[in-house]
Write a protein that binds this DNA or RNA. Structure first.
Length: 220
DNA sequence: CTCCAGGACAAGC
DNA sequence: GCTTGTCATGGA
């Protein structure tokens, strides 16, 4: 009945292939992108990033006026709070660890908890950072994930943590960085290709597992 | 015109 | 605990 979670992953992978996320040229750009994409279309994030001087580096961001940064990232929306969040996060990163490299090499304990203590970094942003910049295994929950699993018939807890633990537990031996990394990217890819607004998405590799899929020829 | 997009937070209950 | 208002641009 319910498709085992790892089979969802396999079907998506077979159909779409490896996504090789995150779309950024280095770790710091990834971290900034994670904040910029909060409730925002990725196209707008790309536009915002294009106005920032690359390669992005923490020091030059910290040397910038917040109002100046806000102006540059305007296309991403919520630009005032995002500028504040980017600067606050970067300040914390440099003051606490010195560099991103230092975090990855020293295997910081409770990194997820520390990220969540920062104002402006919620569970999804923190988990994206952990998987795509800090190489820590976590199953990322987002709006697409909720919608997809809901349509596949799974219970979808409203609590982020409950949902995350449910999936991580169900993944069992498959719960590892590689899978977390690729799975989330595949879910986003699937959502962009098939699940815009309509429940019935012909061509989707998960179509026959979808609650809204009705095919009388196939029904037993 | 309305609605949504790879959320987070604070206030109110 | 859960629900609602707020933040904001750009494309469909």
């Amino acid at each position: 009945m319910l498709l085992p979670i790892i089979e969802i992953y396999e079907k998506l992978l077979d159909y779409f292939g490896y996504q090789n996320w995150w779309p950024a040229s280095d770790d710091y750009e990834m971290l900034i992108g994670a904040i910029l994409t909060q409730n925002t279309n990725w196209r707008n994030v790309e536009k915002a990033l294009s106005f920032l001087k690359k390669p992005l580096d923490p020091i030059s961001i910290l040397n910038m006026e917040q109002s100046k940064l806000a102006e540059l990232i305007k296309p991403s929306g919520y630009y005032n709070q995002k500028a504040e969040r980017i600067i606050r996060f970067t300040r914390w990163l440099i003051d606490t660890f010195g560099s991103i490299k230092a975090i990855k090499e020293n295997n910081q304990p409770n990194l997820r908890q520390k990220l969540l203590e920062l104002k402006g970094i919620g569970p999804e942003t923190a988990d994206s950072m952990l998987v795509y910049a800090f190489d820590k295994p976590v199953f990322i929950i987002d709006a697409y994930t909720r919608r997809l699993f809901g349509r596949l018939g799974y219970p979808v807890p409203k609590s982020y943590e409950a949902f995350r633990l449910q999936i991580e537990t169900a993944l069992g031996e498959h719960f590892m960085l590689r899978i977390c990394n690729e799975f989330h990217a595949l879910i986003v890819k699937q959502a962009k290709c098939f699940c815009k607004a309509k429940p019935m998405c012909s061509g989707c590799p998960l179509n026959k597992n979808c609650r809204y899929y009705t095919d009388h020829q196939q029904a037993n």
